[in-house]
């Protein structure tokens, strides 16, 4: 597959996923109807005073499905882009955003808020109290990664292998803390935490999106400047320096960018696994490992895959909603294994 057709295919899949995500639900709003409602809102110059026949669908779309779709696309894109950057930076096809401690740090902070935050929550204004857990998760994820980067740095150089091992150790430490809090948690707290770890796009609001967007956008804007450096790092850090890359700066930008984007993604949708690992691999299989095309195509494919998973999560067990992390892993993992067995030579260098 050429780069152009590969990227086009990913974009087509994303368009399909967006339409599916907006259309499918307890109230079906087909693609034609989507267009009509959208045109009506535009013609009317807003939702106030909309003709009665459009009010219900416009409300569902604008207040529920559109934010959910936008958040899903953003989270999927952020996870996949972060995964592609991490795999390039660590020169390791196994790398995913969890490797630099974001997910485990965020989980520990989230459970801390759920179990210990009650006393503080009622002192805060309502809006802030509701955001307590996502904010805690964001702060916990970012702080863990920065601590990790600090541990792995000496004389201004970050040692990637040390970072990997320290990440495993910090992950174990956060897991221990998380386990201890889970052990002391009440049943309702336990349930809240469990659902958070399985991930959901259910609580999406425009306000949440506005909070998370800048951090995800930061990685997206940095990506074009990382592409050439990540290509060179495939040769090894020393050879990357030989061809003119400031490797230390590349590592700093990559780690901070990934940590911010993933912390924002995890904070707004929980720990959704697998998209960050799998999407870059699928893209690499289709169009090769060059990061200039790999990074944007991974983001597009990640967005599409997460939206499709969310559609499945919403519809497979109606009226109940499956946790999206269960869907991404249940469908993604067998597919990935199948690919791995068939095409192993082209996935790992």
């Amino acid at each position: 597959m050429t780069k152009f057709s590969g990227v086009s295919a990913a974009i087509a899949l994303l368009v399909f996923a967006v339409v599916a995500s907006l259309s499918i639900g307890p109230v079906a709003i087909g693609p034609t109807r989507l267009g009509e409602v959208f045109n009506a809102i535009v013609a009317n110059g807003g939702r106030a005073g909309l003709p009665a026949e459009f009010v219900r669908d416009a409300t569902i779309l604008a207040d529920i499905r559109a934010p959910r779709t936008v958040l899903g696309a953003l989270v999927g894109a952020a996870m996949a882009l972060a995964g592609a950057v991490m795999q390039g930076m660590f020169r390791n096809p196994l790398a995913d955003p969890g490797l630099i401690g974001v997910s485990s740090g965020a989980a520990f902070a989230a459970v801390s808020w759920i179990v210990l935050g009650e006393g503080v929550a009622h002192l805060l204004p309502q809006a802030l109290a509701e955001l307590g857990m996502p904010l805690a998760a964001f702060a916990g994820g970012l702080a863990t990664t920065l601590l990790l980067a600090r541990i792995a740095s000496r004389d201004g150089r970050t040692e990637i292998a040390v970072m990997l091992l320290a990440g495993v150790a910090l992950g174990a430490l956060s897991a221990a803390g998380t386990g201890l809090l889970v052990f002391t948690a009440r049943d309702d707290q336990l349930r809240a935490f469990l659902f958070w770890t399985l991930g959901s796009l259910g609580g999406a609001t425009w306000f949440k999106i506005a909070l998370a967007l800048p951090f995800m956008l930061a990685l997206g804007l940095a990506a074009p400047f990382l592409a050439r450096g990540l290509d060179a790092v495939a040769l090894g850090e020393r050879a990357a320096f030989h061809v003119g890359i400031d490797v230390e700066r590349l590592k700093r930008v990559a780690v901070v960018g990934v940590a911010a984007a993933v912390a924002a993604a995890v904070a707004s949708a929980g720990t959704i696994g697998f998209v960050g690992l799998a999407a870059p691999h699928l893209v690499r299989l289709a169009i090769g490992p060059g990061h200039r095309a790999l990074l944007p195509a991974s983001a597009v494919l990640g967005a599409a895959l997460l939206l499709l998973s969310d559609v499945a999560a919403r519809t497979l067990a109606t009226p109940a909603e499956l946790p999206i992390g269960v869907v991404t892993a249940a469908f993604g993992a067998p597919f990935f294994l199948w690919l791995l067995m068939r095409r192993r030579g082209r996935m790992v260098g």
Binding site: R91, N92, V233, A234, L235, V243, R284, P289, V348, G349
Partner: peptide, 19 residues
């Protein structure tokens, strides 16, 4: 360098272009 390993399956042309 003495040893040259590529972490991902770049083609020969892409490898030469890395310089």
């Amino acid at each position: 360098a003495q040893t040259n390993d590529l972490a991902f399956p770049f083609t020969v042309g892409e490898t030469a272009r890395l310089g």
